[in-house]
Simulated scan of single mutants.
Amino acid sequence: MRILLFTCLAGLTLIACAPPAHIRAVEEASVSRGDWPEILPLQDLLNAGNDTASTQISAQEQGARLTSRVNGLKSRARRLQGPVIDEARRARLLAALSRENG
Rank of each mutant, 00 (worst) to 15 (best):
T7Q: 11
R90W: 10
R33E: 12
R76N: 06
N101V: 11
D35T: 11
D44A: 15
L66C: 02
L14D: 09
R90N: 11
A16T: 02
A25P: 04
E61A: 08
S32A: 15
G82K: 15
E27M: 13
R89S: 12
K74P: 02
A53Y: 09
F6P: 00
G11V: 12
A53H: 09
N50D: 15
Q60Y: 06
E28Y: 08
L45G: 01
A59I: 15
A77T: 12
S75D: 06
V31D: 00
E87G: 05
E28M: 12
G63A: 10
R33Q: 12
S75W: 00
R65H: 03
A48S: 10
C17L: 15
P41H: 00
A59K: 07
I23M: 09
W36A: 15
A48D: 09
A88D: 09
A88Q: 06
N71A: 12
R69I: 14
V26Q: 13
F6S: 11
M1R: 12
E27R: 13
R24F: 03
L73P: 02
S30W: 01
G49V: 09
L46P: 06
Q56A: 06
N101P: 04
I3M: 11
G102P: 06
E38F: 01
S32K: 15
D86M: 07
N47R: 11
S54Q: 12
A77K: 14
A95L: 09
L93D: 01
G82A: 15
R92I: 10
E61T: 01
V31T: 10
A16Y: 07
P37V: 02
A21C: 01
R65I: 14
A29G: 04
E38I: 05
A21F: 05
S32I: 13
